[in-house]
Design a protein around this nucleic acid. Structure first.
Lengths: 156, 156
DNA sequence: CTCCATTAGTTTCATCATGAAACTAGATTG
DNA sequence: CAATCTAGTTTCATGATGAAACTAATGGAG
């Protein structure tokens, strides 16, 4: 059992996310799915990845509830892969990755696209983290706390 | 050249970020570094990863300007690994991954920690995306545009 | 209905990456 | 200066990846 370590049982939520999304292709598949791709062949030609790897990734994403197979929207007998709410929920991760690249990449001139506000066509601002009361938070304004034990029924 | 495909030259900023951070360990190393870890042995024992892999990752992260080696803060002759601004800039990525897990994980009761506002001790809100003018944007409110060609000197 | 092309995979095989353990050089401690 | 600790490197077995060939089912042309 020299297996590539899994973070499935890890208590850290970051590790748990990485267990599902942290390989080289899953997030790119989700990116394309958000962009509207649905068919095996579309993913394969757009991403240029090996078909066996794509098949394995799609299976994993379906198993984890990130994609679902749907019985074809154009009437053909083939199936399609569509994002579940869980899959669409990965959007902020993609935005965060994009913005990190936009801000820190050594060759930003090679970046082909920018994410813009559809209405105005202007670049979106950086992701913001806010407190419950609305205050804008910087990393230093945050800290980690142990998760409170889930209370059963009512408070003690 | 059956090498694991690199996204280094890819025009997609998400792929470019994944090229630097998209392996199983890099983001966890950054997480620990944000938490204050600095020494090789600290990372190794905290993450429980093989030392050769850790050494390779640290080297890669230093090469990419995400970590820097510093000549020891406690006077010893060993070196330390500290985050650069580029490394600290990955904070939103970690928050996005954490929040995705908090929202969609099948076993959220296994998650040990929550990210809170230091001042109030209350959980932070989900990351928000805003337009330049401050409007809150949903994914559907955004679209991709080709990056405008960089103008030289003045406008045409 | 038949034949051919397309789609969506699976199989095979070579190579790369990962992980565990042993090993090592230099730093630190007693 | 001997024992130990730190920070790695080396070695080797195994798992993951990728390219290409192969296959079964579908779709389309005539």
């Amino acid at each position: 059992m020299v297996k590539r370590t899994s973070f499935e049982g890890d208590a850290c939520p970051i590790a748990r996310s990485l267990d599902a999304l942290g390989d080289w292709w899953s997030l790119l598949i989700i990116r394309e799915a958000l962009f509207g791709l649905r068919r095996f062949g579309e993913f394969q030609s757009k991403l240029g990845m090996a078909k066996n790897i794509l098949a394995a990734r799609l299976r994993s994403l379906v198993d984890r509830g990130i994609l679902a197979t749907a019985p074809a929207s154009d009437g053909s007998a083939y199936q399609e892969y569509v994002l579940t709410p869980k899959g669409r929920g990965a959007f902020p991760i993609l935005v965060a990755l994009r913005q990190w690249s936009e801000e820190f990449d050594d060759h930003p001139e090679e970046i082909a696209t920018i994410l813009v506000d559809r209405e105005k066509g202007r670049p979106v601002k950086k992701l913001e983290m806010h407190a419950e009361d609305g205050r804008l938070l910087s990393p230093a304004d945050t800290t980690l706390k142990p998760r409170p034990a889930p209370r059963r029924r009512s408070a003690s």
